[in-house]
Design a protein around this nucleic acid. Structure first.
Length: 281
DNA sequence: AGCTGTACCTGCAGGC
DNA sequence: TGCCTGCAGGTACAGC
């Protein structure tokens, strides 16, 4: 489910309603949700904490708590963070955890595939979470410049796997990589270091634009993703290649193909994204 | 260093 | 209808 736009939307939709709330208690129904925390200690440590800030880094959601603690949440494939103002709302089947606030409201973590993870850490303990302390540049931050992208693509590896690599750019996933490459006219199996300066410049713009547009649409709901209010996103209506295999390309009418790249289903237009194409789109 | 396969889970679609 | 296979928005890890 969640890539940068979805995680950002979840943060935005729950931020105002959880800020300054105090956690009365926490119920964990699926202990493996806490790979780096002892369950009993987690429940003990989080009890009584107040949420003082909420932010996103890559696909991680970071709750700043008082006492210098952070609750760090990764939704993985199917995780949902849902704010429930009404505690009477029935608990659904895949609810892995519930944070109970002192005012009677709740924040629930629902996760059909159970890949999602919670960590309760101090900021200096980020090194304990593989993937968190190695995150690359935030694509919507000013640090993500064309020069930065040029530097990243110097390596001899395929462009799709590079864009999916969270150590390079934090937050892109399968949907937005496919969409960015389509908008730029780059074949997903091209070697990153074969991209021309023109292509890199266009790719840089397209990555930023597709992410911004997706955030404006509250993310992409293929199946499970919901905002923090339980609503679907609607960027799925604006996708151009992801999930469009067998359909005609919006630019040229050629049939969109689906192949496997970097172990992921990959959608592209064989005409607009030619293997040997350098600067057309 | 990069690539591949496997693993973690559940549910769903498609083929027979 | 049921069984089986493969696949899904993510990522860590082992092994080549």
């Amino acid at each position: 489910m969640p890539e940068l736009p979805e995680v950002e939307t979840v943060c935005r939709t729950i931020r105002s309603v959880v800020l300054n709330k105090q956690i009365a208690s926490c119920q964990v129904n699926y202990p493996r949700l806490l790979p780096k925390n002892d369950l009993d200690q987690f429940v003990r440590d989080i009890q009584g904490r107040v949420i003082v800030d909420l932010k996103r880094r890559g696909k991680y959601i970071i709750f700043d708590l008082d006492s210098d603690l952070q609750l760090i949440v990764h939704l993985r494939m199917t995780g949902q963070l849902l704010f429930c103002p009404d505690s009477n709302e029935s608990v659904t089947k895949h609810t892995s955890a519930i944070l109970y606030f002192t005012d009677g409201s709740q924040l629930r973590f629902v996760d059909q595939r159970k890949f999602g993870t919670f960590y309760l850490l101090r900021p200096e303990q980020w090194h304990r979470v593989t993937g968190l302390h190695t995150l690359g540049v935030e694509p919507l931050a000013k640090e993500f410049t064309v020069e930065k992208l040029k530097e990243l693509v110097k390596r001899p590896r395929n462009i799709k796997s590079l864009l999916l690599d969270q150590k390079c750019i934090a937050g892109l996933g399968n949907i937005y990589v496919d969409e960015s490459l389509f908008r730029t006219g780059i074949h997903p199996q091209r070697q990153a270091n074969s991209l021309t300066d023109t292509e890199i410049t266009k790719l840089h713009v397209n990555i930023i634009q597709v992410l911004q547009e997706a955030i404006a649409s509250q993310g992409t709901t293929i199946k499970d993703y919901r905002t923090g209010s339980g609503d679907t996103g609607y960027f799925q209506n604006k996708l151009l290649v992801y999930g469009k295999a067998g359909e005609p390309c919006v630019n040229c009418n050629q049939i969109i193909e689906k192949i496997r790249v970097a172990g992921r289903g990959t959608h592209y237009c064989p005409n607009c994204q030619r293997w040997d194409q350098e600067c057309e789109a």
